[in-house]
Design a protein around this nucleic acid. Sequence first.
DNA 1: TATTGTTATACTCTATAACTATA
DNA 2: TATAGTTATAGAGTATAACAATA
Lengths: 146, 146
Amino acid sequence: MAAEESLTNTVGFLLGKLGQRANGRYADRLAPLGLRPRHCAVLELLSGGPHAQLGLAKAVGVTASVVVDILDELEELDAVRRVRDTADRRRQLIELTPTGRELRRQTLSLARQNDQELLSAIDPAEAAALLQTLGRIATATGLITK
Amino acid sequence: MAAEESLTNTVGFLLGKLGQRANGRYADRLAPLGLRPRHCAVLELLSGGPHAQLGLAKAVGVTASVVVDILDELEELDAVRRVRDTADRRRQLIELTPTGRELRRQTLSLARQNDQELLSAIDPAEAAALLQTLGRIATATGLITK
DNA sequence: TATTGTTATACTCTATAACTATA
DNA sequence: TATAGTTATAGAGTATAACAATA
């Protein structure tokens, strides 16, 4: 059986479709927490310590105005605090609150549930290989800093 | 080294991010043709023969109104024709024109270029395994009909 | 009454550009 | 002048719902 000459047989197409689906399902799981997928990468980064807003923007891969929006929403949930940097008063240092830390823990748990559903059709060894390959590509293309 | 407890180490997150990137790059490549990614799955389906609009909608996974929009744009490019079904005059049978066939050929070629760039960081065997795994998941979840 | 396709409308996500306050 | 953050606005992309023609 030769490789099928079809769009559905390209990595890019499958990645796009599956990514969209993974995101949608994740959004459904997050909804009860009052969160959407875009909040999660920010919570993740902040769990490593405070960040300035432009730093978050660059790390997450969105523009400054989007970060303002995301942080407004996280602040509304008492998940983060904006603290004016005393050394450079233009800056806000964003830090996680205890509520934020708990939310982050939950987003991680939901992400793992999401993976279980997504990977239920393939065996664990293949799933592990997939995770490794995706991680490799993401690192190589600078998508994640690792 | 234990599995890292981080969002960046989940399949769902990586799939979402990489899918978004793959789509964006593909969109850049398609732009000179006057096409966007959403047109491609429709061209692909039509290359197998005429379809009614609701059939396309279901197969591609979008709503009827979106299909109308996509077909309007493809018709504008002379890539498709709407032919009233004589057996059931509510229906339009959508068929590819010679121009559409040529465009479809080009979208496929660009998709392969896109894959090459995306997969340049990993070796061919790993890339083949990735394609197979993604295809398996997509088929199992009913994302593609195969 | 139900179905095919169409239109009008609204919502989400993101980007760009103009603005402020600091540096 | 340049930078951090904010606001206003606009552009994709999609969905929902009301509608016309046909079954």
